[in-house]
Design a protein around this nucleic acid. Structure first.
Length: 921
RNA sequence: GGGCCUAUAGCUCAGGUGGUCAGAGCACAUCCCUGAUAAGGAUGGGGUCAGUGGUUCGAAUCCACUUGGGCCCA
């Protein structure tokens, strides 16, 4: 007889091989065609909200692995909240304005760029951004990310743009926007301001000079004239000098080479100066920081003081350890100037010529003036040394000419204003930062933050709707004018600013002085402001959303970026942070822990990973690492993730296959379950509690670990292995089999849901193969986590099995020895003897004595004192184990050895247990 | 150059307030099974906890410095 056909072997069409790259698109199609996310949301419409607000990626280029990491993490949060029963709408966004897009557009225009009108550049930029929004949207969807993809927010949408202007006007009304000056890169050849990205560094030859600044007063006593010595490669910036910066980290000395003139400079640069002069010092003395602070220094040719200040940016690798400060001609200088309240001079016009403020060289281009200034310094006796110096210098990317720093009027957001800054710091304290050091990080950045320069001299962005009266020079941004122009923007879009004349926009607005002839502001607002006001333009505007958001989740670089740009406007207008929780993730590095660079050839793209392994593998990778730190990725790491994926998939498959003949009606009540099934439900109870806690704390790596370990240790290697006998050979609807199937049904139902925020495709695959028809629910994402019955929490069973499992370890070692001694091959060929002096253990073993053979997967197991001779013997701690060949013959059906084999002449090759099972076959 | 973060077996990770803390899973090797089968099970070998120097009776765990790596600034 063919006994194999009488077994209840696992049966399923759920494929072992996932074939994710090919099959995942079908699930995406299913989700989209059946509007699964929309349905899930509408099911939870009345429930508590959970708002994760998307930080908009820049609409330029394809997504990289960092984008994938970010969106997958967000998706895990959103799906988990959905399954917890929250209404969690995810509205994806894109950052659309800004220089990189404008540059790509103008690059494509080639030499025509200069003559292309603003409005055309804006139109092309808009098309360019839209193209990449469409590309990136498909790429995000391919990752399995749920979101309201057909209604994302775009910072270039008509409403969003108008709202940007509205928030800006609101801020102006709050009195935190002001007009000031700031140095910018300027190409006087092209007559335009340049952004950092438009600067190229080339070698340039400049005059390097040592200049003596006369000291008028000090505590330093020398027998001659005292000077502070500086070194510069831009003599033309000297007319703008207002200060001399020292470093508190350096030591200074007074040195003389001729006994007549004495110079203050950094101690460790004396040798360099001495070498250049070709003279040894005739006098050298340390001076204290107090001495330095006592110096009252004057400008070498202007009749004003050159103030002594201190700055960290002063170093002693070259020069004199004292830096001449011209706040109008350098960013660092400017910042020092802001800190010390220094005069801001920028006596240079658009063509790079000195203005009349510098009467001596008025009208002369600054680079040509260099030579004249050096000659002049020499003439008045303050030039110590001159040489030609080659160094890296910024040049215009377009015309390749050297650029300069000069100041232009700019719009600022006054964040250093006391009230705003202290309010911001207070609010930072009310936000939960994950990981916790994020708070420290943003706090120190906020503390040191200087005013935010909002204006950009560009085309692709939202105009700053300010006007200046030509008659009296008064500038308007907020007030009734602001209200008026925002109304127009909301109705017609911000493009009218560029397209219409000021007269058309003005309405009946008049200047306080009575004038009605105005000039339009040409600058646009910084892109960081665009995304920074998203809580106003998205959370406050869209019905399904609200502010403050429950969560912002971005890379740790956003402490400087979006988290801050979002904080300031919200603080200034609402007095509140726009978020309750802020979670940051690290950066994705290669397997060696190095940043990815095209030149290193170590870039891993999400597209490649999906093509080779599938999105679920990428999703599993995300949680297999600790995302609060930097993450590593590469083929070796991904292979490991694939292994883990296979294990999880197979565990699901095993459950599905063994439940092929089980339905809800076959479920047994908890009280009827066998102990091992009660044990596994106790494990499921504790795993479930853990998982919910881990999910809520964003500890996804622990979620992964807990699931993976549960599948490997408890389920695969013990529970499922033990179950095989009763599932395959037991009576089809026998109590033991149904008991285990009941537990397995819960395992499958609970775990497929817990896994679904991570392995969304695979979970849906499982759902469709098993639960869809049984429940009538078409998607796992239309369900919620199962409630965890408290009766599963069974301390007694747990403790019993702790003991059983401990003894099992010892037994397995004994079996291994028996196997290596060639006493047995399969563990079913063994009979096991166990004895222990531990009363408690013995009690438990005796209680389970009829099940031990099953737990250990052997044919016979006895608990009694035994003679170890003639047995394979092993002991550990108090456990003594003996192994011999099992008694009786191998049953052809269940493969267990039994003395009952042959007792029935009709079935001479099978055991009594199998005979019983066959009765109702 | 500065701020923040980071360094534990081949990989991914555990190791509150210092004293069985040198762990887990996977991978690997060897063996078993062939009724989860391009699956399943068992046993085993792997680390001077980046380095140096301190504090301490005692440090992976505290402190300092160094080195490597990352983010943000300069």
């Amino acid at each position: 007889m063919d006994y194999k056909s009488t077994l209840n072997l696992p049966s399923t069409s759920f494929p072992m091989k996932a074939n994710l790259p090919q099959r995942e698109p079908d699930f995406i199609k299913f989700w989209i065609d059946n509007k699964i996310y929309e349905k899930a949301l509408s099911l939870k419409n009345k429930n508590k909200r959970y708002i994760l607000h998307d930080g908009p990626p820049y609409a330029n280029g394809h997504i990289h692995i960092g984008h994938a990491l970010n969106k997958i993490l967000k998706d895990i949060v959103v799906k988990n909240k959905l399954l917890e029963g929250y209404y969690s709408p995810f509205v994806p966004g894109w950052d659309c304005h800004g220089l990189p897009i404008e540059l790509n557009v103008t690059k494509n225009l080639g030499p025509n760029a200069k003559t292309t009108p603003f409005s055309e550049i804006r139109k092309l930029s808009r098309e360019y951004a839209q193209k990449f929004i469409d590309i990136q949207r498909e790429e995000f969807i391919r990752l399995g990310v749920f979101g309201i993809w057909d209604k994302p927010y775009l910072t270039m949408s008509k409403e969003y743009e108008a709202n940007i202007a509205k928030v800006l006007v609101n801020l102006a009304d709050k009195g935190v926007i002001y007009k000031g000056e700031k140095p910018i890169h300027w190409c006087f050849h092209c007559g335009t301001a340049l952004a950092e990205a438009e600067i190229e560094y080339y070698e340039k030859e400049s005059p390097a000079i040592y200049v003596k600044f006369p000291v008028k007063e000090s505590k330093v006593n020398v027998d001659g004239k005292l000077f502070v010595l500086i070194w510069t490669t831009t003599p033309w910036t000297l007319p703008g000098n207002v200060a001399l910066a020292f470093s508190e980290e350096l030591e200074y000395v007074v040195v003389s080479f001729d006994g007549k003139e004495y110079y203050v400079l950094a101690k460790n640069l004396v040798n360099e100066v001495s070498y250049k002069l070709g003279k040894d010092p005739s006098y050298l003395k340390d001076i204290s920081m107090e001495d330095v602070k006592s110096l009252k220094v004057f400008h070498p040719f202007e009749s004003r003081e050159s103030k002594v200040v201190f700055s960290e940016h002063v170093v002693s690798d070259t020069g004199t350890g004292i830096v001449h400060i011209a706040p109008g001609h350098g960013i660092e200088d400017y910042e020092v100037g802001v800190r010390y309240g220094l005069l801001l001079l920028s006596p240079v016009d658009d063509e790079g010529r000195f203005t009349e403020e510098v009467s001596e060289w008025k009208g002369i281009k600054v680079f040509e003036a260099n030579k004249l200034i050096v000659e002049y310094l020499d003439k008045i006796g303050v030039l110590l040394h001159y040489e030609s110096y080659k160094h890296q210098y910024p040049h215009c990317w377009r015309c390749k000419n050297p650029v300069i720093f000069r100041t232009k009027p700019q719009w600022f957001f006054n964040v250093s204003e006391k009230f705003i800054k202290s309010k911001a710091l207070e609010e930072i304290n009310n936000v939960k930062w994950v990981p916790s050091w994020g708070k420290n990080r943003i706090e120190s950045m906020v503390k040191n933050r200087t005013d935010w320069c909002l204006s950009r001299q560009r085309a692709w962005g939202v105009p700053i709707p300010a006007i200046t009266c030509k008659k009296c020079g008064k500038t308007y941004l907020g007030g009734s004018w602001g209200k008026h122009i925002v109304e127009i923007f909301l109705r017609d879009g911000v493009d009218v600013w560029f397209e219409k004349s000021i007269k058309d926009l003005l309405g009946d607005f008049k200047c306080d002085c009575g004038g009605n002839d105005f000039e339009k502001e040409k600058d646009i607002v910084d892109v960081w402001f665009d995304s920074g006001v998203s809580s106003f333009c998205v959370l406050d505007e869209r019905e399904e959303l609200s502010s403050p958001a429950d969560l912002y989740l971005e890379g740790s670089d956003q402490h400087r970026g979006w988290f801050q740009s979002s904080l300031w406007p919200s603080i200034a207008i609402k007095g509140k942070a726009p978020y309750k929780n802020v979670l940051t993730h690290g950066f994705v590095l290669d397997e060696q822990g190095r940043a990815m660079h095209k030149s290193l050839g170590n870039v891993v793209s999400p597209e490649e990973v999906i093509k080779k392994y599938g999105a679920d593998v990428l999703r599993l990778w995300v949680v297999s690492e600790d995302f609060t730190e930097d993450l590593r990725i590469g083929d070796h790491i991904l292979e490991k993730v694939v292994d883990a994926y296979r294990k999880i998939r197979n565990t699901f498959r095993y459950m599905i296959a063994n439940l092929y003949d089980f339905s809800e009606n076959d479920k047994l009540p908890y009280s009827k379950l066998t102990d091992i099934d009660k044990w596994v439900l106790d494990r499921l109870y504790s795993v479930s509690k853990n998982l919910i806690e881990y999910y809520d704390n964003f500890e996804f790596n622990k979620v992964y670990r807990n699931i993976y370990d549960f599948f490997n240790i408890e389920l695969s290697s013990f529970y499922f292995d033990v179950l095989k006998d009763r599932l395959y050979t037991g009576k089809r609807d026998g109590i033991k089999r149904r008991s285990s199937q009941t537990a397995m049904y819960y395992l499958l139902s609970f775990m497929v849901k817990f896994v679904s925020p991570i392995l969304s495709f695979t979970s849906e695959d499982v759902w469709h193969h098993f639960f869809k028809d049984r429940t009538g629910i078409s998607s796992v994402f239309l369900t919620e986590y199962d409630t965890i019955p408290d009766e599963w929490n069974n301390k007694e069973i747990r403790e019993n099995f702790d003991t059983v499992l401990y003894v099992r370890e010892v037994v397995l070692k004994a079996l291994d020895i028996a196997r290596r001694s060639e006493v047995i091959n399969s563990s079913l060929e063994a009979k096991v003897y166990i004895d222990t002096s531990n009363k408690k253990i013995k009690e438990i073993l005796e209680y389970y004595k009829d099940s031990l053979w099953e737990f250990f997967i052997v044919s016979q197991c006895v608990v009694e004192s035994f003679d170890p001779s003639n047995l394979i013997y092993y002991e550990e701690e108090e456990i003594r184990v003996g192994v011999s060949k099992a008694e009786g013959k191998k049953c052809e059906r269940c493969w267990i050895y039994s003395t009952t084999v042959g007792s029935n002449p009709d079935h001479p090759t099978i055991c009594s247990k199998c005979l019983e099972a066959l009765c109702n076959f």
